[in-house]
Amino acid sequence: MIKQQEGATVDSRVKVAIVYYSATGNIAQIAQEMAETAEKAGAEVRLRKVAELAPRAAIDANPAWVANDSATADIPVAVADDLVWADAVIMGTPTRFGNVASQLKQFLDTLGGVWQQGLLADKVYSGFTSTGTLHGGHESTLLALANTFHHFGGIVVAPGYTHPDKFADGNPYGTSHHDAGGTAAVDDTVRAAARVQAERVVRFARAIATA
């Protein structure tokens, strides 16, 4: 607890919403790593997935998609209030033609009402991604996601090259994974980068919330 004034206290825990879309599970694994890290850093965390738009037939045709759908069945679906509640928001999306996946974009497009009320402003925002090919849009996807954060009036906190693990990961804009067309699992390098990013987001969100 932080002393606010004599006789009054405020909760020092920052609130972090981690909102993501994941088809075959890479983004879901990174989101989970970030959620655990943020909690260890003292944050209250809401882990949320956005609604699936793909037809059931498409999901059932891909064993990895089916497995992730089952593994994350208990994760609540994101709603606007999850962002309004948060001091910091970390969003994750696979790359789709160098851009944000339609499932996450659809969720973003539902936020007009709370955006118009100014309820998304002055929060910390950060992003992460995964691609199927080595140069498949890591940076362009994260930069595209940041465009939305700017429109919200958010404070974009990128991990940058602020830690040795980010030089290994190689992406200053956010954590990113290359799954080599579905053959490469989320590895220790990606997990370490995710931890760096989550800790940095919590640190900046706390500094802003208690300023």
Score class of each variant (00 low, 15 high):
2 I>N: 03
4 Q>R: 10
4 Q>F: 11
5 Q>I: 14
6 E>T: 11
11 D>R: 03
13 R>F: 13
13 R>Q: 15
16 V>D: 01
19 V>L: 00
22 S>D: 00
28 A>E: 02
29 Q>T: 08
32 Q>C: 04
33 E>I: 03
37 T>H: 04
38 A>L: 15
39 E>M: 06
40 K>T: 13
40 K>Q: 08
44 E>T: 00
45 V>E: 09
45 V>N: 09
47 L>M: 00
48 R>F: 07
49 K>E: 06
56 R>Q: 15
56 R>N: 13
61 A>R: 03
65 W>I: 02
67 A>N: 01
67 A>W: 05
68 N>Y: 13
71 A>E: 07
72 T>I: 11
73 A>P: 15
85 W>R: 12
87 D>V: 04
88 A>C: 06
90 I>K: 14
91 M>R: 01
92 G>H: 09
94 P>R: 03
94 P>W: 03
95 T>C: 00
95 T>F: 05
98 G>K: 07
99 N>V: 09
100 V>Q: 05
104 L>K: 06
111 L>C: 05
113 G>P: 11
116 Q>E: 01
119 L>V: 07
120 L>S: 05
122 D>I: 13
122 D>P: 15
123 K>A: 12
125 Y>I: 01
129 T>A: 15
130 S>E: 12
132 G>D: 03
134 L>S: 12
137 G>R: 01
137 G>F: 08
142 L>E: 11
147 N>S: 15
149 F>L: 01
150 H>L: 13
151 H>N: 04
152 F>M: 04
154 G>E: 06
155 I>F: 14
156 V>G: 04
163 H>T: 12
165 D>C: 08
168 A>V: 15
172 P>T: 06
172 P>I: 06
173 Y>D: 12
173 Y>M: 15
173 Y>G: 12
173 Y>S: 14
174 G>F: 00
174 G>D: 00
175 T>I: 02
179 D>V: 02
181 G>D: 07
181 G>K: 03
183 T>V: 12
183 T>K: 14
184 A>I: 09
191 R>S: 08
196 V>D: 11
198 A>F: 05
201 V>H: 06
203 R>D: 03
203 R>S: 06
207 A>S: 13
208 I>E: 07
209 A>H: 02
211 A>W: 13
211 A>M: 14
211 A>I: 04
